[in-house]
Design a protein around this nucleic acid. Structure first.
Lengths: 338, 338
DNA sequence: TCCTGGCACTCTGTCCATCCGAGTGCCAGC
DNA sequence: GCTGGCACTCGGATGGACAGAGTGCCAGGA
């Protein structure tokens, strides 16, 4: 077990390294933090911390930098979440309040998060399967062509074209619309499949094919892989990544373009509470030199999606976590109001 | 006026520099292109081209690189548009054919364009004001709350919440919906304002306020600044920008995040035909070391939006222009079908 | 008039040797 | 268990020498 002072030394190393981006030596440490001991003692502590794998030297005769394991300990035991200041809170609220629709909410959130943390922000659209149906609309565009529009309680709208096997009259369409809405409006999307399976039976033989087609399109739009969308922003902050970033930045940009990767990343994070994934804790190789801070957000008590930031492992964890948490909270409020 | 051979020399310089990314000297030129003259002659030609401002030397005793003016001449007179090969065409079509909705079409187009050109791709969503109205839907969510959904012929869907000044009955809502659609369905968005201004008069006094509110919300969504959206992709290709890119990449990423800048950029490009903006021809400073190739696309003969790529001035112009043109053509087809 | 070969010149990038400083590990003493 | 001292290591900066690529210019030839 590490003594209290050694933990203090580790904390000081993390803080200094995050601030200066340079390996921190024993002398500088004693000067900047009054640990009450001499550099020599700190050196012994550092050697012990290195043995345990919390810090490392880039090369002999250089200072120490924290390892992923060191950051992990720092995040778990040595640092809290830094709350936003009241002015910051007001700024967040003002910025988000002007949004006109869901796209706008998500776009503003991304910008805000990127600015606050000076890192890359990722915001997932509210998940369909965890939302409830507000309304289903069917529009006849041609005798055998129907447009299906789905509206969720979180303001998300999805639409699909349906090519019907047979012409579908306005009366039948109105009937289907009414039946569909009375069955599924207000219900969770995840429950929809079970609620509509016997619907075709309520229609005449000539319309059953079309009704089935419409329903299967409806169910398709709920399939997991189609329903996940996200928005990213603040990629310009990647240029602050570090001096050697030409090699680092490439795989990160690639990962960010692969929405599948990002979605998986967010998906793996815990469902409630804030999750911090540090360096190699991220399964995706291109993100091995980054940390991901994410948290769920939602209009009620329950999370409907996640948001977070991606930054270098050398990041200000308390500040980043504070910003992410605060933004998630306000976005939840906005969604609840709309 | 430049002699034919000097133009050939310029063409060769551009081609070599684009290929190698290194200043090209007189000797290398004569070896790689059989110009039929000696290096000394080429040197004279180069000196002339430099006097005219088409090429420049990074420093004495280095080869020459094309200037923006040189690229301009190259694009205008010395090179054509390289058509896509049949396999490439098929790949484009296959890739785009799988799209399920407009978002998907745009997303796929961005990916495709980024892959084909190995540069940053930008695709604008079909403009509202240049589209026609397919349908307007009004949904009553609460007694004094209406959701307005706009659907365009290009498949774009916009929705807005409307808080009504007074409760609005289902009958009035249906009436408004029917009147609205009969007036504006099939019409261009730009014409909508004139077509609806007298609509409130058709309603009873108690509903007029609400009708006006709905209409003003409708008109708001058509306002230029709200209606422009775009999607970008392929930012990872920025890392291939050049050796000194830490300084170059930053402002480009920033410009890409500023959708306003990009929209302006696309907006300034000619309305029909392909536009190439080279280096300093771009008004935005951050993009002074990039070229933008853009073209309009649309479902019929007329462009409803633009798409293009952003890359280093040192880019393969014929190939890029070919890819941009081909993609725009296929996207237009896809939109026309849906 | 235009092209060509030759020649002197310039500049960059690289290699190497040197040196300085920061930082470490270890040890003896308190 | 802490501290001061000391020898050691290594990276980064500095500066000179050198090779190579490329140029401009000039005189001679088609």
């Amino acid at each position: 077990m590490l003594s209290e002072r050694r933990l203090q030394v580790l904390r000081a190393i993390v803080q200094d390294y995050v601030g200066t981006e340079e390996p921190v030596g024993s002398k500088a440490l004693t000067e900047r933090h009054n640990l009450g001991v001499s550099p020599a003692t700190v050196r012994n502590d550092m050697a012990a911390l290195e043995d345990e794998g919390f810090i490392a030297q880039p090369h002999t005769s250089a200072g120490r930098i924290p390892t992923d394991k060191g950051y992990r300990l720092f995040v778990d035991k040595l640092a809290g979440v830094k709350p936003m200041t009241p002015p910051e809170r007001r700024a967040i609220q003002n910025f988000l309040d002007g949004a006109v629709d869901l796209d706008d909410v998500v776009a503003r959130t991304v910008r805000l998060l990127a600015q606050l943390t000076r890192q890359v922000a990722v915001v997932q659209y509210p998940s369909l399967t965890r939302s409830t149906v507000r309304h289903v609309e069917l529009l006849s565009l041609a005798p055998a062509r129907v447009m299906l529009v789905l509206i969720t309680d979180t303001g998300r709208v999805e639409q699909r074209m349906v090519d019907c096997p047979a012409p579908f009259g306005e009366a039948s369409l109105a009937d289907l619309r009414a039946r569909l809405n009375s069955r599924i409006a207000g219900r969770r999307f995840a429950d929809v499949p079970g609620l509509v399976e016997d619907l075709p039976e309520a229609f005449g033989v000539e319309d059953r094919g079309t009704v089935s087609t419409v329903l299967s399109t409806l169910l398709e739009t709920l399939v997991e892989e189609n329903e996940e969308r996200l928005m990213i922003g603040g990629t310009a902050n990647l240029t602050r990544f570090g001096h050697d970033f030409p090699l680092t930045i490439r795989p990160v940009l690639e990962a960010l373009e692969e929405q599948v990767v990002l979605l998986k990343l967010l998906g793996e994070a815990g469902d409630s509470g804030m999750t911090v994934r540090i360096g190699h804790e991220n399964a995706y190789e291109g993100l091995n030199s980054t940390s991901v801070v994410s948290v769920g957000y939602g209009s009620g008590g329950e999370a409907v999606a996640k948001l977070g930031v991606v930054g270098p492992t050398r990041m200000d964890y308390p500040g980043t976590m504070g910003a992410v948490r605060a933004v998630a909270r306000y976005v939840g409020q906005i969604l609840a109001e709309s």
